[in-house]
Computed example of a mutant assay.
Amino acid sequence: MRKLLIPVVIVLIGVLFSSLYVVEEGTRGIVLRFNKIIGLSDPGLHFKIPGVDNVKVIDAKIQTTDSSNNSGREQKFITREKKDLIVDYYVQWKIVDFDRYYETVAGGNSVENLLLARLNGRLRAEIGKLDIKDIINDTNADTKSRNSLMVRVKDALNGTQQSTANIKDVPVEDLVAVAETDPESITSMLAFGVEVIDVRIKQINFPPEVSESIYARMSAEREVVARDQRFQGIREAEETRADATLAATKILSEAEKQARTIQGEGDANAAKLYADAFNKDREFFSFIRSLKAYEKSFKETDVMVISPDSEFFRYMKLNVNSAESNKK
């Protein structure tokens, strides 16, 4: 009896453990019976029928999909003014209908690819209505702005509750076919069990060929500004030099004027002194002046042709006559 009890206990323990399963926090468990959905398990410990029921665990947290998931290809969009733009964006979404989501992925479809296809289509339609300056504008109040564009895209991806309720009656494969053939269709992502939480544009660039022309134009504009600044600097430098030259000329003129005034006053004082001395002893003054004239006139290499009877030699003759008188 004991020999039979032990295998039975082991089997029961095995059945018990195989019938238990745990759903971790942040996930949900879809219970399948013969590949048909019979229930949804919240986080915690649950039971199932071993060998009959199967549980698929699905991530229930908010997920983020980046535009780089588009097979690594750049997404080009055309604005209303026919300008090409490369838009880098991301979208946040979560599963709200796990049954519908499982039906979608169970058929071999990728919800992320469907979401990106729909998002690209809506972005292309919305960007085509705006100019570049409107897309760059990030205000919330203006309907022609990047923020309002993202809100419209998110609302378009989610659709209305009425349209979603009606579209849930349509088989998933038919909805997938419509979404793949017409990315700009009004098919709501809620029809695939997914709700879009947020859409954000991270970066807006121009294609390389457009960027080069823009950079060339910007460089030319900066060159014009730089040239104007250089010309402005040259003009201010010339004006500064002219002002400095004018100020220097005024200073030199004033200094020369003062020097001439002082020199004139000195000459006048000297003339007055000479005149006073001359008035006191005119003969002595004439004699001194003659001596200075002799001193300046007679040099070693100078030759003078003057008549001996000239008045210039008057005092010299007197000196000669006085010397002869002294000899006698």
Rank of each mutant, 00 (worst) to 15 (best):
M1E: 10
L5A: 06
P7V: 01
V9K: 02
I10D: 05
V11C: 08
L16Y: 09
V23W: 01
E24H: 04
E25L: 02
G26M: 04
I30G: 03
F34N: 15
N35Y: 12
I38T: 09
G39N: 08
D42K: 15
P43R: 09
G44R: 11
G44C: 12
G44Y: 11
G44W: 11
L45R: 03
L45D: 01
H46M: 05
K48R: 14
D53L: 05
K56D: 07
I58Q: 10
D59A: 03
A60M: 08
A60S: 15
Q63S: 13
T64E: 14
Q75A: 11
I78N: 12
K83Q: 14
Y89P: 04
Q92I: 00
Q92H: 00
I95M: 10
Y102K: 02
G108M: 05
A117M: 12
A117P: 00
R118G: 14
L123M: 05
G128A: 15
G128V: 06
L130M: 15
I135N: 05
I136W: 10
N137H: 11
D138G: 00
D138I: 00
A141V: 12
D142E: 04
L149V: 09
M150C: 11
M150K: 01
V153P: 01
K154V: 02
L157S: 09
T160A: 03
D169I: 04
V170C: 01
P171L: 01
V176D: 07
A177F: 02
A177T: 07
E180K: 08
E180I: 02
D182I: 04
P183H: 07
T187Y: 06
S188T: 10
M189D: 02
I201K: 03
S211M: 11
S211I: 00
E221L: 12
E221H: 04
E223W: 00
V224C: 00
V225T: 05
D228C: 01
R235E: 15
E236F: 02
E236Q: 10
E239I: 11
T240Y: 09
R241L: 04
L246S: 06
T249R: 15
L252I: 09
L252P: 01
A255P: 05
K257G: 13
T261W: 08
G264F: 10
D267A: 07
D267R: 07
A268W: 08
A270Y: 06
L273D: 06
Y274K: 12
A277Y: 10
A277Q: 11
A277F: 10
K280D: 06
F285E: 11
F287M: 13
I288D: 04
R289S: 08
K292I: 03
S297T: 15
T301V: 03
S307N: 14
S307H: 06
D309Y: 11
S310D: 14
F312N: 12
F313T: 06
F313A: 11
R314M: 13
Y315G: 00
M316W: 12
K317H: 15
S325Q: 13
S325R: 14
